[in-house]
Amino acid sequence: SQQIATAKDKYEWLVSRIVKNHNENWLSVSRKMQASPEYQDYVYLEGTQKAKKLFLQHIHRLK
């Protein structure tokens, strides 16, 4: 749906803004993002596993 696509774009923007180093780990980054509406919306719509998967894809691109 359009809502999910929009939430994903915003979440990816948030991840790219916060995660600048491929050594970052999911636990510390997800804690930093918990207060962000972009993170909350995406997790609400798609779940934590998908959020983690996108985070890991971003990390992989930074290597």
Rank of each mutant, 00 (worst) to 15 (best):
S1Y: 06
Q2F: 08
Q2N: 14
Q2W: 10
Q3P: 06
I4D: 07
I4H: 09
A5W: 08
A5N: 13
A5E: 06
A5M: 12
T6A: 14
A7C: 06
A7D: 05
K8Q: 10
K8A: 07
D9H: 13
K10D: 07
K10F: 02
E12N: 13
W13H: 15
L14K: 01
L14T: 04
V15I: 14
V15G: 01
V15W: 01
V15H: 05
V15K: 00
S16F: 05
S16I: 03
S16D: 10
R17C: 10
R17S: 10
I18R: 04
I18D: 05
V19D: 02
K20H: 11
N21K: 10
H22T: 14
H22V: 11
N25S: 15
N25V: 04
N25F: 00
W26N: 07
L27G: 14
L27Q: 15
S28K: 09
S28T: 14
V29F: 15
V29G: 03
V29I: 11
S30K: 14
S30G: 03
S30I: 08
S30N: 07
R31K: 14
K32D: 04
K32R: 12
K32N: 08
K32H: 05
K32P: 00
Q34D: 12
Q34V: 09
Q34G: 07
A35Q: 13
A35P: 07
S36T: 12
P37R: 13
P37D: 07
P37V: 10
P37W: 05
P37Y: 03
E38Y: 09
E38G: 04
E38R: 01
Y39L: 02
Y39V: 01
Q40G: 04
Q40C: 09
Q40P: 00
D41Y: 06
D41C: 08
V43W: 01
V43M: 04
Y44G: 14
L45M: 10
L45N: 04
L45C: 07
L45D: 02
L45S: 07
L45G: 03
E46R: 04
E46M: 07
T48M: 13
T48R: 11
K50I: 01
A51G: 01
A51F: 03
K52N: 03
K53L: 13
K53S: 13
K53R: 11
L54Q: 02
L54F: 07
L54G: 04
F55D: 04
L56P: 01
L56W: 09
Q57M: 11
Q57H: 07
Q57L: 06
Q57S: 10
Q57A: 13
I59A: 06
R61Q: 11
R61C: 05
L62G: 03
K63Q: 11
